[in-house]
Simulated scan of single mutants.
Amino acid sequence: METNHGAGPGQPVVVGVAPGQSPRVVGQAARFARQFGSELICACANPARFATGESADGSMTSASLDPDFADEGEAAFDPQLAADLGGILAGTDVSWRTLAIPGDVAHALGHLANTVDAAMIVVGTRERSLGGSIQELLSSSIAAKLARGQFRPVVVVPVGAKNEGRASGGSVE
């Protein structure tokens, strides 16, 4: 499922988004898209689905990994997340759209970036906590997986910093 909010020239910027994510990640991705004069693609991956078809614009059809518990609503982009993105990006001159993409997050973002010939992929760090650090150590982070498997730039936006609301990444202008 895709929502389109205009179109922009040049190579798009792909940003990985998820419910509850710091708005700083999308804000920084929007700054890059504006500087490049390109479109921002806000992509949310669902590891419980797999691709069954794809278009040149990066949109995909998918099916549930578990057909016994298939919910076709899972294939659509989360309406609340889309509304949150709209609030973050309101008042900007950045053209953006949403995409729900199936599969492992790092693989799906990398595949999307390749499909649309993105200028870069933007992701955020996880919140800092003991549990998060152990989990990240045991299962490599999305950013690390992308960095190992991509030829295009992967930008990692730190979140959870004490100065998160300051000019370095608080608002999109």
Rank of each mutant, 00 (worst) to 15 (best):
E39T: 13
A18R: 15
I134S: 00
V15A: 01
H107W: 06
G87M: 05
S139R: 15
T92V: 12
P67Q: 12
G27C: 10
L109C: 09
M60H: 05
A48N: 04
L99H: 06
H107K: 02
Q21D: 05
D66A: 13
V123D: 07
N114R: 14
L138G: 03
A33L: 07
G73W: 08
P47M: 03
D78Q: 08
S141A: 07
R128Q: 07
I41D: 04
M120H: 01
G132P: 07
G87W: 02
W96C: 01
D84P: 08
S140W: 07
G27Y: 03
V105W: 06
S129Q: 14
A18M: 04
L81S: 08
A82C: 02
A108I: 02
Q35W: 10
G87K: 15
G87D: 13
T52D: 04
P79C: 07
S22Y: 08
T92P: 00
E39W: 06
L40Y: 09
R34K: 12
A76K: 14
I88Y: 10
A29C: 12
R49K: 11
I121Y: 01
A48P: 00
S139K: 12
A108S: 07
E72M: 11
L81R: 11
R49P: 00
S133P: 05
D68G: 04
D117I: 04
A30L: 07
G103Y: 09
A70V: 14
